[in-house]
């Protein structure tokens, strides 16, 4: 599923994206989530960190959705809706940082391996083999155990797990680009390696990076939620969607809304980034538009 680059012309990309209802749905939801994250303080009806006295029954059970707490309360008597709204920030922030880092590492190593080939490529690609053989989740759990979990650390752990896919795709693509006419020509004209990589290679890698940058956020959002669910993610009381489910787990039979709402938020966000990414892929690669 590599993209063989033809320099994309933006208007046509946008046009084809607009004709794809699934991708447009993704785009709208993604924009919505971004807006919610940006304006969380204005949108959240309550302070997401406040443990309300009246937010728990006298026996200590959470409240189901009601007039005061629209989506109910969590096991500490906090407003679930407000926590979900603030949780969008964490998901997106970790998604952007982690995926940005993964993209950077992956593109750099992949293109270096593809362009220079030889021993360097062998080492880098063997290393990606090893990373692929690693049980990713166990690696992430072990790393978060070593490092003190904070938003940045969680993002970096995810990046360390996720860069491999990008590196492999970029490698394959660089390999074919390096043999293409315009690179050979530039080489013949005496352009230096750095100049060729930056001037000629990277622009052609951009569409791939854009697609993987979007698709990857979906994976990242899921992984962040999973780590938080296992209790090794972003630290409480920071509201993280996965963390909310972790805290509510023992109560899911009597308070299923505490799993259902955050679960839906994760699903919706992940699906939307996937749909958008897939739409971009088709729009950027005419060959896929059958």
């Amino acid at each position: 599923m590599t993209l063989i680059a033809s320099t994309p012309s933006r208007p046509s990309t946008w046009r084809s994206l607009r004709r794809n209802p699934a991708a447009m749905f993704g785009l709208i939801v993604v924009l919505l989530v971004i807006l919610i994250a940006l304006f969380a303080p204005l949108l959240a009806p309550k302070n997401p960190a406040e443990q309300f006295f009246e937010g728990l029954t006298l026996e200590g059970s959470p409240l189901s959705p009601n007039q005061d707490f629209w989506l109910g309360t969590d096991l500490l008597g906090r407003d679930l809706l407000s926590r979900l709204i603030y949780g969008a920030r964490i998901s997106l922030l970790v998604g952007l940082i982690a995926n940005g880092a993964a993209l950077l590492i992956g593109t750099l190593l992949g293109s270096l391996a593809g362009y220079f080939g030889g021993a360097l490529a062998k080492i880098i690609m063997r290393f990606t083999d090893i990373m692929m053989a690693f049980p990713a989740l166990l690696l992430a759990i072990a790393l978060s155990a070593i490092l003190r979990p904070s938003l940045w650390i969680v993002a970096m752990v995810i990046a360390l797990v996720n860069w491999v896919q990008v590196a492999r795709v970029v490698y394959a693509q660089t390999l074919s680009l390096a043999e293409s006419e315009f690179v050979t020509a530039a080489n013949a004209l005496g352009a230096g390696n750095g100049r060729i990589m930056f001037r000629h290679l990277f622009p052609h890698l951009l569409p791939t990076m854009l697609v993987y940058g979007t698709l990857g956020i979906s994976t990242t959002v899921l992984l962040e939620a999973t780590l938080s669910f296992l209790g090794v993610g972003v630290q409480p009381p920071t509201p993280s969607w996965g963390g909310i489910i972790n805290e509510s787990q023992s109560y899911f039979l009597t308070a299923p809304w505490l799993v259902f709402f955050p679960g839906s938020a994760i699903l919706l966000t992940a699906v939307s980034f996937n749909l958008l990414g897939d739409g971009l892929r088709e729009a950027l690669d005419p060959k896929l538009r059958r």
């Binding site: 999973t226 669910f229 996965g242 489910i245 679960g263 994760i266 699906v271 996937n274 749909l275 897939d278």
Partner: peptide
């Protein structure tokens, strides 16, 4: 297919259980 791919397993598992 994308919904399936994007579903968080832990939430899905809990909801199926419920």
């Amino acid at each position: 297919a994308f919904i399936g791919v994007s579903a968080p397993q832990f939430a899905l598992g809990l909801i199926l259980l419920y």
